[in-house]
Design a protein around this nucleic acid. Sequence first.
DNA 1: AATGAATGAGCGTTCATTCAT
DNA 2: GATGAATGAACGCTCATTCAT
Lengths: 211, 211, 211, 211
Amino acid sequence: MHAAQRKPRVAGTGTATSELIYEAIVTLMYERGYHDTSLREVARKVGIQVASVYYHFPSKEAMLMEVMSRTTRDLTRRTEAEVAAAGADPVARLTAAVHAHVTFHAERRKEAFLADTELRSLQPEQRTLVAGWRDRYEAAFSAILQQGFESGRFRRIDQRLALNALLGMCNEVAAWYRPSGRLTLDQIASTYADLFLNGVEMQPVVIGPER
Amino acid sequence: MHAAQRKPRVAGTGTATSELIYEAIVTLMYERGYHDTSLREVARKVGIQVASVYYHFPSKEAMLMEVMSRTTRDLTRRTEAEVAAAGADPVARLTAAVHAHVTFHAERRKEAFLADTELRSLQPEQRTLVAGWRDRYEAAFSAILQQGFESGRFRRIDQRLALNALLGMCNEVAAWYRPSGRLTLDQIASTYADLFLNGVEMQPVVIGPER
Amino acid sequence: MHAAQRKPRVAGTGTATSELIYEAIVTLMYERGYHDTSLREVARKVGIQVASVYYHFPSKEAMLMEVMSRTTRDLTRRTEAEVAAAGADPVARLTAAVHAHVTFHAERRKEAFLADTELRSLQPEQRTLVAGWRDRYEAAFSAILQQGFESGRFRRIDQRLALNALLGMCNEVAAWYRPSGRLTLDQIASTYADLFLNGVEMQPVVIGPER
Amino acid sequence: MHAAQRKPRVAGTGTATSELIYEAIVTLMYERGYHDTSLREVARKVGIQVASVYYHFPSKEAMLMEVMSRTTRDLTRRTEAEVAAAGADPVARLTAAVHAHVTFHAERRKEAFLADTELRSLQPEQRTLVAGWRDRYEAAFSAILQQGFESGRFRRIDQRLALNALLGMCNEVAAWYRPSGRLTLDQIASTYADLFLNGVEMQPVVIGPER
DNA sequence: AATGAATGAGCGTTCATTCAT
DNA sequence: GATGAATGAACGCTCATTCAT
């Protein structure tokens, strides 16, 4: 899918310099933001010279683009896979989509956070490119909502609003999740899906056949 | 020998110029972020020299702090007022809180967005201060949730998670809302409250007395 | 004529900072060339910080442009004035043009040398602009040659070649002239004019009316 | 332990790659100047890696030195040969010298241009060396002028000035000559010699014995 | 013969900030 | 209130060069 401009790396070493730089970029930009992260800090963190960073990436923006492309690609793949495995029921599909999205945003919260918040730091051309990827990704959520509305499984809520609300609440996970937290990823993901599906309010007692 | 060093009474208050600077800051920082906004741009937008900006604000960080304090104060006031007017019912209170929060994030989306995303651009001391304000503000939402749980009006969902989900979805409004959009603020706010309370899923038919 | 982007300076001080920077630029670029002259050297020579240079000139290229525009403007003015004062005779006009051109290239040899050799260091847009000025300037020499050919005062030599030869030989003065040399500017200028008009070869004896 | 450090036999000689590098250097430095030509561009033009350039030349300065030495050697040889073949007459000798110099500056204009303009880009030691070659080369022209003065064939014009004017006008050919131009090399060369010998001005009618 | 990877120095430029006027 | 002029630090980036392979 997304073109990546990294050089091929010798297999077997999991910590090639390019990868170390990538990790430093992700961590620093997550903590301070794109513009407040200097390549001098990146180099220092990796333990190399600034000029050496430029052997592996052609520019600072290309580093951010690498984050964008890797992240969007991996997120898209995971979500598509989980949704596909969930069958045809909109409720199951939405639960799967939320599960994939939320766990990704927790497990790879730094990259996901960057992908969600640093779009504006890209130049127009790159921004358009990435925005296109995001739009295609979000279209999958839209399709599930649409399907739910049409099948009568979902209440008729403004689709755009529902999408924004859902993504807004799920994306935020990347901002607060800590691996050492008291909840498992599955707990978080299923709570989110449950909340979005059923709301927080206690529903009145149901009389009649079980659903 | 040393010229007396005058500093303005209260940062950013009083004169028309201060207000113009404030507006320029808000707009530019909303569009590009704190670190990618230079005081040269701010001054140019206002039509004054860079040095003149320093008559009105002692530092760039103080400008961001002004946004933080104004915004948090006004948001807090509005939300507290609307919640107080809503009576004692947790559902009504939560609906009021969401209404206040969402309409504020739409009407003053630039400031609200900055308050939500630029905390990390503050120095530790200032950051702690603002974080305290935010915590106190969010505690109001927590209290409503707590009240709903205890009174049996809300399902027993992890409180922290519910809070994060609610704020995440409501804060995002500042990122996408446009005044020229097709929905009124009240529509957006009530849809959000409804969504958070009842979820998107169609509930089974209820037999029995109306609620 | 040429737009200059310098700020107006308080009259009376002959050594305003902008002027000191200009002089440092001219000297350093004359000695080492545009690309081998760093703004750090310029600043050091003037005794200010690098950043201060940028208060007076927006970019390195703008500094070279200032040299180009000042120099071409002054050279054009001087030559036009001297040629106009020479009357209608092509020999007198060419002598005057050579005089103006050569003395300018000697007196302000650094600037003239830069104007002659650093065109290629400008960006395409600026280069085109300056090249236009030069073309207009050289057209004056062409016109004199043309007039001489048509009036029968000059031998029919390829006009383009004659122009190139003349300017090539005169421009070079900026490369070797030293104020401490043994010849006066007028001696140099009149020798050049004489050489170009009559050549180095001894002409056969003339019998008949004096010319 | 230490790998033996091989260095090429003679800088830039022998292999085809060396020659390709030489040509790339000449073209790029002619177009942009020594300091604005990077070895990255050179390598890219040749289609090799930067490090590979260093197998063929020990340094960037050595590349320029190769241009200087090849060019001065070839120019000197050609001019000496043509002058020697011209016999004893100063007019014939000067015509021959101009012919050799001008045609060389046209045919190998890039190298000749570099040899004429990039002396200052060499370090003092190398500069002195090349300057010596140039001085010896120009001494041949001086000798011809001297001979012309003493024999009465040339008018008594300041010798240094005449030399500078002659070389200035002839060197410039490298800056404007294009192979596709309308004039042949011989036309250009003979026009230049004629111009320098007889000037542009029409001489009065000669009465008396033919010369 | 060639190259992947690295380096230290330096580049032009911009930054937030200061201060006398 | 406002500004012209300056500053020190840092920025992203490129340079010629090295060296083990």
